[in-house]
Amino acid sequence: MAQSSSASDLSPWTALLLLAPLTAVMLLILIYPLGLTVWTSLYNGRFSFDAYVELASSTLFLRVLRNTFEIAIGGTLVSLIVGYPVALHLAAQPPRRRTAYLIMVMLPFWTSILVKSFALVAVFGNQGLINQFLGFVSGGTLNVPMMFNRVGVILGMINFLLPFMILSILGSLLALDRRLILAAETMGAGPLRIFWKITLPLSLPGVLAGVLINVTLSIGMYITPALLGGRQDMMVANLVDFYTRQTLDWTAASATAVALLILSGLLVALLGKVRGSAGLAGAGA
């Protein structure tokens, strides 16, 4: 064994040679700009934490931070409430049919976020499919604004988040030993009791991972609040853009970005603890 692996092993120099180009690109295009962002937030003629002190006392930043948490947590909760039954439904299907349904669930995952945003406006907008229907039914009196406000952001958000939530819960449900349920049924437990005592507790790891993935993905959202929200629905990522382009205050933009980086770093670390490092792969995109 030791012999066979040494024969197929690369010499350290060859390995270095193969790794060097990508490492150089990553240092230059990933680490350097991140460092530059931190630097810009701290150094403005002189070295200071002023930018962070200013952020902490800025009503705009605090309001945006509150929005971000409200939207991220609200979106995640809706995604959990909608996603859990879907995961149950998928888990109960025979494998072949499950694959077919899964493709439907994964479709938004493959679709450009801009296409999804446009499509959601076409369905939920003021002249969209649903409001046309409501207007038709009510004789033109009923129009529910569901876009360019908080509802719009949440709709866009869950359209993006649901596949991650569903897949995460489905993983737990499929790993669940079904003989437990059979045994409980044989012993006369009702469906509610079975769900409450067996299915739900055993699926909690998947729920927890799904929730963390959803929160992590949603706190950094930029496109959805910009396109589907109103002016009051600005999130942290939009504030970074606002400081960069509107007020040209790169120091404040960098400090905001660093705050977001730390926040999402904490969430990613937590997720890593919950799912092991392999689980992080699902948090991308």
Binding site: L30, L34, G220, Y222, V240, A257, S264, G265, G284
Partner: peptide, 8 residues
């Protein structure tokens, strides 16, 4: 994959 894309 783990850094918010707006920060990058």
């Amino acid at each position: 994959m783990l850094v918010p894309v707006i920060v990058l």
